[in-house]
């Protein structure tokens, strides 16, 4: 696991207005997180909470209009393409690449400047930390739902992101798995020491992650 000991990353998000076509989804949202801090955005579906993550990561569909900016360590990154932002994104589906082994999935996002040996070691360490030691050569299709979710989170973390966004990461897991995976996520994120933003509609998810919580329905302006 890559540790970010200096806790120096600082993610600032400010959204004056986010609209889909003519419909305004939210106004006046801003937050600032430093390494290790976390934030939960809560709201019902349609409140635009996933669009906020898409905006931060750089994937907002063209039908949306937004006024606002994303700053990383003081630099405005909202005009950069997603691949230059160093912001990792995890969806409710693990979206492991089916044609790659578990190890290849993890190495996929690791910076190229690390040497081969270092990359392998890093993957092995990450897997051990996740209780998946020796899984490098496994076919993702043979993993259980909980294992897939863990690999997906590891893949995001070993890419040395400056921030991590979680889009309802627990919603597709059944109840007992969800408990265990929540604990895993909290633990891993704390170790990694990056700012974490999650969106969810489940109070328990927000409580588990700790940190602040913003309820989005309050912000939503009706047409």
């Amino acid at each position: 696991m890559v540790l970010n000991d200096d806790h120096s990353t600082r993610l600032e998000v400010q959204i004056d207005c986010l609209a889909l076509g003519e419909q305004v989804l939210l106004r006046e949202l801003s937050f600032c997180l430093t390494g290790g801090q976390s934030l939960s955005l809560m709201g019902p579906s349609g409140s635009g909470k996933s669009s906020i993550l898409a905006f931060i990561a750089g994937f907002l569909p063209p039908a949306f209009r937004v006024k606002g900016q994303v700053k990383l360590n003081g630099h405005d990154i909202s005009r950069l393409p997603p691949e230059r932002r160093r912001i990792a994104l995890m969806f409710q589906d693990p979206l492991l690449f089916a044609h790659m082994s578990v190890g290849e999935n993890l190495r996929f996002g690791m910076p190229r400047h690390l040497g081969g040996e270092q990359r392998r070691q890093c993957v092995a360490d990450a897997l051990v930390g996740a209780g998946l030691s020796g899984f490098e050569a496994r076919d993702p299709a043979t993993l259980s739902g909980g294992q897939k979710a863990r690999v997906a989170l590891l893949r995001a973390l070993v890419s040395e992101p400056a921030a991590l966004l979680l889009d309802e990461p627990f919603s597709k897991l059944d109840t007992d798995l969800r408990q265990a995976f929540r604990a895993f996520v909290v633990d891993a994120c704390q170790q990694a020491g990056v700012p974490v933003v999650q969106v969810t509609h489940d109070q328990q998810d927000a409580l588990a992650l700790g940190g602040r919580c913003i309820e989005l329905k309050d912000l939503q302006s009706k047409r």
Partner: peptide
């Protein structure tokens, strides 16, 4: 589309993500 998003958020360009993923 979402696989492409994951790959790009991990730092790959569109072309790189397309041909690799």
């Amino acid at each position: 589309e979402r696989s492409l998003m994951v790959a790009r958020s991990l730092g790959h360009s569109r072309l790189s993500a397309w041909f690799r993923v």
